[in-house]
Design a protein around this nucleic acid. Structure first.
Lengths: 219, 219
DNA sequence: CATAAACACGAACGTTCGTGCTATCTATTT
DNA sequence: AAATAGATAGCACGAACGTTCGTGTTTATG
């Protein structure tokens, strides 16, 4: 009797792969969880299989190589990130509210410990920043995408008349990113309870200093 | 004084341990180099021995456990950090010049790639930030020490009348740290050539905004 | 110069790593 | 009910992991 990871499929599954896909998703959720704590290299096939009550080979068959597993894990983490940060922020109107939404949901993601290790991509960034290969390239691309999203929100806030048009969106995006990451660092490594509120305050001050009079009020 | 039941141990003069110490230093220099790229977990006894043309066992005897090797590597990295950042900064007079010296030498350490992987402690911070044990504790203590050094420099700049006494040294220290680390992140992961100059400019602007008229001019 | 301490080595330990092959099981389609 | 494709398990592999042990080789000093 095989130990099913998941409940048996519903009656009318359209065609195949349903079970496999669900198992794969369950694997990847665990993989993100482990990798956020022990890193993408510390994520091993053996420990992953053990935590899911699966055999190494049965699990491994879903991916074909460790590198593929790492890539799929990164992709899953990106999906979680988008789901918790990018998408909710879109509900706010363009301009400063949406920009602040990005920041707020991002800090919220870290505070609520959606990733057990705190922040998947900060950890992955520093783990792979001086290596080569497709995993590093993918992480870098996703981080480019993220910085770009912040910069675009700033640019649109300028177009909406909420932010001084003279400021450089890219540079401001980097500053915001750095402060948030620094807050995470202080919270996670130094157990600094005020870390996130300090980061929030610092970013708010920064935004207020570049906001125009026409800008909707910030929190 | 009662006579010992057993023959007293023949006390020989302690031998000099010059050779062993030199080997140990050579090992640790390599270990820092490897760990700055592959992390403290990616640092393995086998690869380290191979790069030094030593046997695994001969190398291992210097430490006794992998954890001890990691701790010694962290200590060596701290020594290099102090040598390149903290000590040179002391040559500048107290106040803003010394504070700026800390920042400048720190950014210089990263730019000159003293650590092959860019920044040993940033990488180590994020590698161990959600683990437990003595290695994590030591890294956290060193980072506390470092943040404290920046905060103290700010405080002394206030006492010297160079910085507005109303600013919070600790908070400003965290901001400076975050910006510098963010610059490193952008340079190392995103291959952003302007990353360090942008970080330098941002920190300079921050310092200028809190400087008093009595402050010696910044670069 | 003798010798004990410090140092380094080779071989091997048990474990875990990533990765194959093959057989069996399960669920859907005929 | 048989056929079929997909999913999982069992088993084995070579390599590398951290670690131990016994044995030689340096080397400083009594």
């Amino acid at each position: 009797m095989p130990k099913a990871v998941l409940a048996p499929p519903k009656k009318r599954a359209p065609r195949s792969q349903a079970r496999g896909l669900r198992t794969r998703e369950a694997i990847l959720e665990r993989a993100v969880d482990i990798a956020s704590v022990h890193g993408l290299e510390g994520l091993t096939v053996g420990s992953l299989a053990q935590q899911l009550n699966m055999s190494k080979s049965g699990l491994f068959a879903h991916f074909g190589s460790k590198e593929d597993l790492q890539l799929a894990t990164v992709e899953k983490a990106r999906q979680i990130f988008i789901e918790h940060v990018t998408l909710p922020a879109i509900h706010a109107p363009k301009g400063m509210p949406r920009l602040w939404g990005l920041v707020e949901h991002w800090l919220g993601l870290k505070e609520k410990h959606i990733f057990r290790g705190g922040c998947f991509f900060s950890a992955a960034s520093f783990e792979f920043d001086s290596r080569r290969g497709v995993v590093r390239d993918r992480i870098a691309a996703i981080m480019h995408e993220w910085i770009g999203a912040i910069a675009r929100a700033i640019y649109e806030a300028q177009k909406a008349g909420h932010i001084d048009p003279k400021v450089d969106p890219t540079r401001t995006a980097f500053e915001i990113h750095a402060i948030a990451m620094g807050g995470h660092w202080a919270h996670q490594l130094l157990d600094d309870r005020q870390a996130y509120s300090r980061a929030r305050t610092t970013i708010l001050e920064k935004l207020r200093s570049i906001a125009t009079p026409a800008c909707p009020h910030l929190p």
